[in-house]
């Protein structure tokens, strides 16, 4: 009798736990869905509306005929500031959600991201892309993981070379991101107290039901392998 009670009790706990896990995963998915949608809307508003208005203001300013050197200098200064604002706005919008991800898909978006990062740093990045048939929802998660990782490489790794590859093997996609930088203590990734960026990577991986393996040692570079079931 006692045994039956214990079994029943354990089974109930397990069932409850499974439900909770499933519920949390659904919630995580919904939260990310909402977040990505919102980001897309803001990025589009920035680009399409604010960006065009700033460009238009510049056009209008160019019609002013400066009467003297001082007015001319003020005009120049204003145009320069407008150019700078436009560039900042582009950067913000691109980080929010690159339009190219929607229009041309993951491959082009990743190439653009890596180009931008390679241009902004002195890191030589080798890219290989051999994967197709990734759904748009998954593409956003993969893009964000890659973005976060590339960001870490540029910001913390002190690497001179990095490689990025994405390939399709049977029924899964494998994403490999490696660098020859200073590496880091693995515990920082495993710990719950990991930084926001790392937590985001893990949460997105969870939604993708992906497995992350990490090989890194201080001074020995970093190698991430993420296996995503299709």
């Amino acid at each position: 009798m006692l045994l039956i009670l214990v079994i029943f009790f354990v089974a109930t706990i397990l069932k409850y736990h499974r439900r909770k896990v499933a519920f949390n995963l659904e919630k995580l998915k919904a939260d990310f869905g909402q977040l990505d949608q919102e980001r897309e809307r803001i990025a589009a508003d920035l680009h399409d509306d604010l960006g065009s208005v700033l460009s238009a203001v510049k056009l209008h300013l160019q019609r002013v005929e400066a009467r003297d050197e001082k007015s001319n200098a003020i005009l120049r200064f204003s145009e320069d500031q407008l150019d700078k604002s436009v560039n900042t706005l582009r950067r913000i919008a691109f980080n929010m959600m690159p339009g190219v991800l929607h229009r041309k898909g993951l491959e082009e978006a990743l190439k653009e991201l890596i180009n931008l990062m390679a241009d902004a740093s002195a890191i030589a990045v080798n890219v290989q892309y051999k994967a197709d048939g990734i759904s748009h929802a998954n593409a956003i998660h993969i893009y964000r993981i890659a973005q976060e990782m590339m960001h870490n490489i540029v910001k913390h790794s002190k690497a001179t070379r990095a490689s990025f590859s994405i390939s399709k093997i049977k029924n899964r996609v494998e994403l490999r991101i490696a660098d020859n930088g200073i590496g880091f203590d693995e515990k920082l990734f495993i710990n719950k107290s990991a930084g926001l960026g790392m937590r985001n990577i893990k949460a997105r991986a969870e939604v993708l039901k992906a497995k992350i393996s990490l090989a890194t040692l201080p001074g020995k570079g970093t190698h991430f392998l993420i296996k995503i079931p299709l």
């Binding site: 399409d48 509306d49 065009s52 208005v53 460009s55 238009a56 203001v57 056009l59 209008h60 160019q62 019609r63």
Partner: peptide, 14 residues
Amino acid sequence: ADDHDIYRDGLQLL
């Protein structure tokens, strides 16, 4: 062609 009046106006005047 542009979907922003303000940009078209600027362009046209210019």
